[in-house]
């Protein structure tokens, strides 16, 4: 059960990490989100989401290199897994299916 469901924020975060293509970590994801969608998510919320996604198996992560800007701390870089990609595809498929139904219903209503 837990593995299949994708929340709205989760989906967006997953997509962002996909876009960043193996470069995504905390702040970078946050910035990308605000750039692409103009959506401000707090860092702590983002962390929680990413770790939850990792627990669900949609993401995998490793500790990357330390830099001076980070006060000598390494960053956790996230990558999207095949399971994650499939979940995204599935959610996209579902949506498209729904969208195709939408105008059909509207035209039916109009003709009546």
């Amino acid at each position: 059960m837990k593995g299949i469901y994708l929340g709205e924020l989760e989906e967006i975060v997953l997509l962002t990490i996909g876009i960043l293509d193996g470069q995504g970590y905390g702040i970078k994801v946050q910035k990308e989100l605000s750039e692409q969608l103009n959506r401000n998510v707090t860092l702590s919320a983002l962390h929680t989401v990413m770790h939850r996604l990792e627990k669900k198996g949609f993401l995998s992560s490793y500790l990357g290199g330390a830099t001076k800007e980070r006060g000598g701390k390494r960053k956790r870089i996230f990558q999207i897994t095949t399971l994650g990609r499939n979940a995204l595809e599935e959610s996209r498929g579902n949506r498209e299916k729904m969208w195709q139904l939408m105008p059909a219903i509207l035209t039916q209503n109009n003709s009546q």
């Binding site: 970590y25 905390g26 860092l43 800007e69 006060g71 701390k73």
Partner: peptide, 15 residues
């Protein structure tokens, strides 16, 4: 297990 990345992120954004 998560303390290092958080400290790093916070440091970066602080800078």
């Amino acid at each position: 297990e998560i303390v290092e990345e958080i400290t790093g992120d916070l440091h970066e954004i602080w800078l």
